[in-house]
Design a protein around this nucleic acid. Structure first.
Lengths: 195, 195
DNA sequence: CGTCTCCTTGACCGGCCGGTCAAGGGTTCT
DNA sequence: AGAACCCTTGACCGGCCGGTCAAGGAGACG
């Protein structure tokens, strides 16, 4: 049997660096977290960082890409081949909530990344993919007469807004579980406020 | 008649610093924008900055407080003494959209501030006020039987989520006008997705 | 054993950053 | 005039930051 190496190398090291940096960035902020802090937190020399990543910025970009990719996979897996567009939207929202519950720290990372020009591009690309996925379900729902005939892009962003705000407030901020929040989010999106 | 001073003093100087800094922070990021850049952009010496503000952080906090205060005043002014809780919510959303349209740059500032511990407190306080205002209308709407009997806090955050996401995407990002976006946001919040 | 490759070390560098302060200018009082 | 007050200047400081690099393991292979 293989034993855990005391000094990981290769991909393990990379993971270690990315995980640790992600947590520090999320808790402390990207700029206030220095490369020196990251490596000393892991008990290694600075050269290790620059062996695996060409810059702090590159590491950040990789974190963002990976997280977005992971979130999307989670959504698609949850949706599977569900035929009902309304149900697909609900499943996607539930999957997003669950993912945010399991990766609480990444919420801050996403939010920060959107505010800085050099990371905003990556975030926009990721969001465009999410919007693209979701808008298809919405359009289909409208065509099938299941949903109101409003601007699909607006509806899509409204759904994303509900999901991300409830994820922030109740999961990220208050530490509640994903499932109960998802139920509320879904019923709001489907039926709105009015009685 | 009084003429514009060539070298503003007192409150004018303060305003000048705050406005310029807010724009630089929003476009470039808080950390990447140095105090040196701010003062040289205004063509003044560094001492001016530290005459009016005790630190870069304090200036930032003041910007956040002022912006939140201004946004809230705008909402309250729009709502006036409207008796219908549903209409009050719609008026508040419309006012928020209009405010974001007129202060596009502040969106990034808010978003960044939430991600850094030392500013998160101020943001939370501001949001708590907004939630407090809004949740009252929601509760009243439920009591009056105008709205679905769901958790008022969830409904409130869902409304905020729709508002802020649509503001970000269509006003901040795409530069559309506030009014048309507000209509979509309101109708989504009231009636949801379903036909 | 030598050698090759892969990884690690940490002192070091140039540069920038937030913040200080002694000195002086401009206005407005008396 | 001259004193008092308010504002402005910009050189300067200590410290930290992202990034470099010569040197040196540690294991694999022959």
């Amino acid at each position: 049997m293989s034993v855990k190496k005391l000094t990981p190398r290769g991909k393990d090291r990379r993971r270690q660096l990315m995980d640790f940096a992600a947590h520090r960035f999320a808790e402390n902020g990207y700029h206030p977290t220095s490369v020196a802090e990251i490596v000393s937190g892991l008990g290694v020399g600075k050269g290790v960082f620059y062996w695996y990543f060409s810059s702090k910025e590159e590491l950040m970009l990789e974190l963002l890409r990976e997280a977005q990719h992971d979130l999307r996979r989670r959504q698609q897996q949850a949706i599977g081949d569900e035929p009902d567009p309304v149900e697909r939207i609900a499943l996607g929202m539930r999957a997003s909530m669950a993912w945010f519950a399991e990766n609480r720290h990444l919420y801050n990372l996403f939010e920060f990344a959107r505010t800085e020009e050099r990371f905003a591009g990556a975030m926009r690309r990721g969001q465009d993919v999410a919007v693209g996925d979701l808008v298809r379900h919405v359009k289909e729902g409208i065509v099938e007469g299941r949903m109101r005939d409003a601007d699909p892009l607006m509806l899509t962003h409204a759904i994303l807004g509900v999901t991300s705000q409830l994820a922030r407030e109740f999961i990220h901020e208050r530490g509640e579980s994903g499932d109960s929040v998802a139920d509320h989010a879904i019923s709001f999106c489907l039926r709105g406020l009015l009685a």
